[in-house]
């Protein structure tokens, strides 16, 4: 444990250096997160004449810009690495190191965060100035909790990816499983459509699934669409998901590793 903590700063530095080294590639990846902007344009067109539910044109702008920021800050790509390394057998090198591979992956993903922040903060600034602050929650407690909800959202994303990625120990097409996960994410996280605008039963169902806590919850909280009591309740649900997924990830990882044969390694 202590050893892992001591290694953390170095691993983060290495990760950051990697992200900077491939900055052009990094930029292209970021640019491909353009879905919130497309949905922003679409929903603004829909709300041009009259608001949809609680959402007027400006609310949609605030919602999807916030969604873009949260999405950029909660990006993870561990599944592709895991898939690749398990199949090619290069995971063996990671297993030799005295640090849990999941921690190492997490470091690599987190280390790119400063670069991501540098790109998403301007968006956040635009959001603040064009909306005149009217669409940012006025509750100081919720504003202070926002970073925690983003961390929780990132953890859920990362852990879910690790679990699906670890399926590569068992099956060849873990990528397809992840595609289904992404499909469900698109609808149940509020990424394409704010969850309130769905029929009521979908909204309720979304509350019981992890996807909402990866995106919609931090977004709705920070643009002030949630009361304090509701936000606190949802925060606990979010971290409950983090705990459950964390335990699952460790378990799946341990079981899967027994089957790992380092083909070709």
């Amino acid at each position: 444990m202590l050893r892992t903590l001591r290694a953390l700063p170095t691993m983060l530095r290495v990760g950051l250096a990697e992200a900077v080294a491939y900055r052009a590639e990094f930029l292209v990846w970021l640019l491909s997160t353009n879905m919130p902007l497309v949905m922003l344009a679409l929903w603004s067109a829909v709300a041009r004449d009259a608001p949809v539910g609680r959402f007027g044109q400006k609310d949609f702008v605030a919602y999807f810009l916030a969604a873009l920021v949260v999405r950029l800050m909660t990006g993870a790509w561990v599944i592709w690495e895991l898939n690749h390394e398990i199949r090619e057998g290069t995971l063996a090198f990671r297993l030799l190191r005295p640090i849990h591979p999941l921690v190492a992956y997490a470091c690599e993903n987190v280390a790119a965060m400063p670069l991501r922040l540098a790109l998403s903060l301007p968006v956040a600034a635009v959001l603040l100035f064009t909306m005149g602050g009217a669409h940012i929650t006025h509750d100081p407690l919720l504003l202070a909790l926002f970073p925690i909800t983003v961390v929780g959202a990132w953890l859920i994303t990362f852990l879910a990816m690790s679990i699906v990625g670890a399926l590569a120990f068992y099956i060849d097409s873990a990528g397809s499983v992840f595609e289904i996960w992404m499909g469900l994410f698109g609808v149940f996280s509020g990424y394409l459509v704010p969850l309130e605008l769905f029929p009521r039963w979908v909204t309720l169902l979304a509350r019981a699934l992890p996807f909402r806590y990866m995106l919609a919850f931090p977004v709705e909280m920070v643009i002030g669409m949630q009361s304090r009591a509701l936000a606190l309740a949802e925060l606990s649900v979010q971290w409950l998901f983090v705990g459950v997924l964390g335990a699952c990830a460790l378990g799946v990882w341990r079981l899967g590793l027994r089957r790992f044969a380092a083909f070709g390694g």
């Binding site: 949905m39 679409l42 929903w43 067109a45 829909v46 949809v52 539910g53 609808v187 394409l192 459509v193 605008l197 769905f198 029929p199």
Partner: peptide, 14 residues
């Protein structure tokens, strides 16, 4: 799904 939701709220868009 998004198409159905959009047109569930509006008869026509643009």
């Amino acid at each position: 799904v998004p198409l159905l939701v959009v047109f569930g709220h509006r008869p026509a868009v643009a």
